[in-house]
């Protein structure tokens, strides 16, 4: 009998709680009219950033495409005249992308970054396949400092042998001095 009363009480409490909710203001944000400001680290549309010198950061090392769990990134690396490695084309299929951010984590040059912009819907699925021109942005994204070719140790227009950060002058292989 006691349990019956308790059950009835519990039921009544439940019904009362839901009833009370009827008179609360809905917490829903009405999305297309109200745009919420998303945190900078929100994972949405992917961009390719530039280094502080204004050159493409991406060196087409294939790490993002290797780590991508849905294989939505493809590219072809190539070499510029000054020896700089870059992506001759770079393609992200946003119809397949799951915005997991692993590419950003894998990127050794801070080139590929996820941004909070997420309104990329298209009716034609081919328009969700972004090429390098669509992905490139004219800023450094979240990492304002890093410039891979200044520390890499390979010869480019930026620095020759021994001119990168923390490098000694090249060894003179023809000297007799100890």
């Amino acid at each position: 009998m006691k349990s019956l009363v308790e059950a009835a009480k519990a039921l009544a409490e439940g019904f009362a709680t839901t009833f009370n909710h009827l008179f609360r203001r809905p917490v829903t944000e009405e999305y297309p009219e109200v745009h919420r400001v998303l945190p900078a680290r929100t994972r949405a549309r992917i961009v390719l950033t530039l280094d502080p010198d204004g050159e493409e950061r991406c060196v087409a090392c294939y790490l993002c495409s290797a780590v991508c769990p849905v294989s939505c990134i493809s590219m072809q690396s190539a070499e510029k005249e000054d020896g700089r490695r870059y992506a001759s084309w770079f393609r992200i299929n946003f119809a397949r992308c799951i915005y997991c951010g692993l590419c950003e984590e894998a990127c050794p040059t801070s080139a590929i970054q996820l941004t909070p912009y997420f309104e990329t819907c298209e009716r034609d699925i081919l328009r969700l396949v972004y090429e390098k021109e669509d992905l490139l942005v004219q800023h450094q994204g979240k990492d304002k400092e890093y410039n891979f070719y200044k520390v890499a140790g390979v010869v480019t227009r930026l620095a020759g042998k021994g001119e990168h950060a923390r490098e000694e002058k090249p060894v003179n292989v023809k000297t007799n001095l100890p």
């Binding site: 140790g153 390979v154 042998k161 923390r166 490098e167 000694e168 002058k169 060894v171 292989v173």
Partner: peptide, 22 residues
């Protein structure tokens, strides 16, 4: 190690092999 790295000048070894001595 935070010191400086030793570097070398690379050589041209023909059209088949690229050289990067560092």
């Amino acid at each position: 190690y935070q010191g400086k790295k030793r570097t070398y000048r690379d050589q041209y070894l023909g059209e088949l092999i690229a050289h990067e001595m560092n």
